[in-house]
Design a binder for these strands. Structure first.
Ligand SMILES: Nc1nc2c(ncn2[C@H]2C[C@H](O)[C@@H](COP(=O)(O)OP(=O)(O)OP(=O)(O)O)O2)c(=O)[nH]1
Ligand SMILES: [Mg+2]
Ligand SMILES: [Mg+2]
Ligand SMILES: [Zn+2]
Length: 578
DNA sequence: GCCGTTTTCGGCCCGACTGTTTTCAGTCG
């Protein structure tokens, strides 16, 4: 997939156009197209080859032509021509918080700054503060931002950000000025990574609420503080934004502060078409507020049903809501079990019994133990003989857990030559077989796709685990033809995992959306290495919801009996003639 | 540059905070 690469070039083109003072709506069009291509869930080169670029919302004739040009020649003439007209450093400078297009151009042009190092020197020499509409305070602020630019540009996995946000929420709740309080922004939408923590508060004493916020012990620095909002930096250099509104505006502010930006713009445009105005204080007809107390009121005033935060991305949810519909989404309460977990026999850190107990407490109907096969030497992968012994032990455990069916399985490694690490006889005897790639991650995309499809064609393989191998913040995942993988999943009747580990979330939401459109059977697994990880299920469910997955496309929402029939089904069709 | 249950042309979200401002530009959410 070259989507990220294409999106990055379109974003650069937008930046250069902005520096050149071109029409802001055109600039916005390029940014919009870049965002949509980045989240397409399908390889842009496939779309281009099939002449479907124009079908992408936000991509018209002009941008389609530039994408085609890039994919066939490796260049975009319009970008190269514009690049030659702006100082190269201006593009880098724009990435520093506090430097937008105007200041970037001034600093590059007037001061001859060519790099971040030059910028730092110019700041220290007081040259930046001499520029028009830049003073000593702005210069000092930019210098501080510069010192933490690397730590600040990191996005945190949702799992980490969420608990940190809860900490701030608990702290603020102690203030009597705080009435209602909730995390908003990308945390409420359950995005896989979080750029900052956004917290919404309602209050009739906003000054007191803001004072409580800016004086929290976890605050290292106050970035901005006004009458309705404030931003601070925590000791870990994480930004926290607080928004304070009166109670009668809480619903409208929650809608605004939850986003996404694109969803907000869509709703505000809809309001305009209805002769209304939508902002964070309410829905207004002329000067009169007609909604604002609750989110439901706000959506209703626009003629829409309430929409779950996870799907507020302007990817079709508003159009659907205009017909009075909301896509049916899987929920945490639908989950009846977990089909991927490890024990301390391999790289897990607790026993099967401890996890079975936790599954029972969680109200699960089933739990599968799927330790690593032998190829994974580093994890102490088991031989078939060792697996058989483990499976016997698990079965002997079963009578003590009458409410949870303990399934005996394996996470079998897919070798680089496409062979599975276990014999067919052994796999056929397992209740659940999860297959995945852990080695030769640098192989080309065609090779990895062929490995996965070969595994799916084995009638004993029920699930492909963490299909892309990406690790958030660590590695992008091996190359893969996602469309071919999903088609093969449908053809072979194999379920595709949404791995709920916060660093994996693999498939991601965009890929889930593509899978759902094809009717692929999904399964949400925690890959728990310790029973304390069973609650990670919520992050997998959130990813499924962000991909518009309904419960009937999630295998482990099924009752035990149906699950067992589904697991038996593939082996059957594999053995009997078509 | 894109788009269309009011449009194929004429719109395109709306507001807060900061600083240097002599009335508001720049940046960010
Ligand atoms: N109407 C409107 N709302 C915006 C705009 N920018 C941001 N918002 C709203 C929606 C966002 O979800 C919310 C918080 O802004 P953030 O910049 O923190 O974005 P968000 O939390 O969605 O993503 P993040 O993970 O922080 O990058 O504020 C905008 O330009 N217009
Ligand atoms: Mg945010
Ligand atoms: Mg924010
Ligand atoms: Zn695993």
């Amino acid at each position: 997939m070259r989507n990220a690469e294409v999106a990055s070039l379109l974003n650069e083109l937008a930046d250069v156009m902005e520096l050149l003072g071109e029409d802001r709506y055109r600039v916005a069009s390029y940014r919009d197209a870049a965002m949509r291509i980045d989240h397409l869930g399908e390889a842009i080169e496939d779309v281009a080859r099939e002449g479907r670029l124009d079908d992408i919302h936000g991509v018209g004739k002009s941008i389609a032509a530039k994408v085609s040009e890039y994919l066939s020649t490796g260049r975009i003439a319009a970008l190269e021509e514009r690049r030659s007209r702006v100082p190269a450093a201006a593009l880098t400078l724009m990435k520093v918080p506090g430097i937008g297009p105007r200041r970037a151009l001034l600093i590059a042009r007037e001061l001859g700054v060519k790099s971040i190092e030059d910028l730092e020197q110019a700041l220290r020499e007081g040259k930046v503060a001499q520029l028009p509409r830049v003073g000593t305070k702005v210069a000092a602020h930019i210098l501080e931002e510069l010192s933490r630019i690397s730590s600040r540009s990191q996005r945190l996995p949702l799992g980490v950000a969420m608990s940190a946000a809860q900490e701030a929420v608990r702290e603020l709740e102690r203030s009597s000025a705080v009435l209602e309080i909730t995390p908003a922004g990308s945390i409420r939408r359950m995005c896989e990574t979080i750029g900052d923590k956004d917290i919404l508060v309602s209050s009739t004493k906003p000054e007191a609420a803001i004072a409580a916020f800016t004086t929290m012990p976890l605050v290292k620095e106050v970035l901005a503080s006004g009458e309705t909002r404030a931003s601070v930096l925590s000791h870990a250099d994480l930004q926290i934004d607080l928004r304070v509104v009166p109670p009668e505006s809480y619903g409208a502010a929650l809608q605004y502060f939850t986003g996404s930006k694109e969803h907000n713009i869509k709703l505000r445009e809809l309001a305009i078409r209805r002769g209304l105005k939508l902002n964070e204080y309410g829905v207004f007809r002329e000067e009169t507020r007609i909604a604002g107390q609750t989110e439901e009121d706000v959506y209703a005033a626009l003629g829409l049903p309430w929409l779950p935060p996870e799907i507020r991305e302007d990817t079709g949810e508003v159009e659907l809501a205009l017909q009075g519909q909301v896509p049916p989404l899987v929920g945490l309460a639908d989950m009846r079990g977990d089909l991927h977990a490890h024990t301390n026999r391999t790289d897990g850190s607790s026993t099967a019994e401890q996890k079975a107990r936790a599954a029972e407490t969680a109200g699960y109907e089933y739990l599968a133990f799927t330790d690593h096969s032998r190829a994974l030497g580093v994890t102490g992968g088991l031989t078939e003989e060792e697996f058989r012994k483990q499976h016997e032990e698990i079965r002997s455990l079963q009578p003590r857990f009458p409410r949870v069916r303990l399934l005996c399985g394996v996470e079998v490694d897919i070798h680089v030559d496409k062979r599975l690490d276990c014999s067919d006889d052994f796999l056929a005897a397992c209740d659940v077989v999860v297959a995945s790639i852990h080695s030769a991650l640098e192989q080309p995309a065609e090779m990895q796709t062929a490995r996965l499809i070969a595994a799916m064609e084995n009638p004993n393989v029920d699930i492909i685990a963490h299909p892309t191998g990406r690790l958030l913040g660590k590695r992008p995942g091996y190359g893969l033809d996602l469309t071919a993988l999903l088609d093969a999943a449908v053809r072979t009747g194999t379920a595709i995992e949404i791995n709920a580990q916060p660093e994996r979330l693999d498939l991601n939401a965009d890929a889930v959306r593509a899978a759902v459109e094809r009717g692929v059977m999904l399964v949400i697994n925690t890959d728990a290495h310790h029973q304390s990880q069973l609650p990670l299920m919520r992050f997998g469910v959130a990813t499924a919801r962000r991909g518009w997955a309904p419960s009937d496309l999630v295998l482990n929402t099924r009752p035990l009996g149906e699950l067992l029939r589904w697991l038996a089904r593939k082996g059957q069709t594999g053995r009997s003639p078509a």
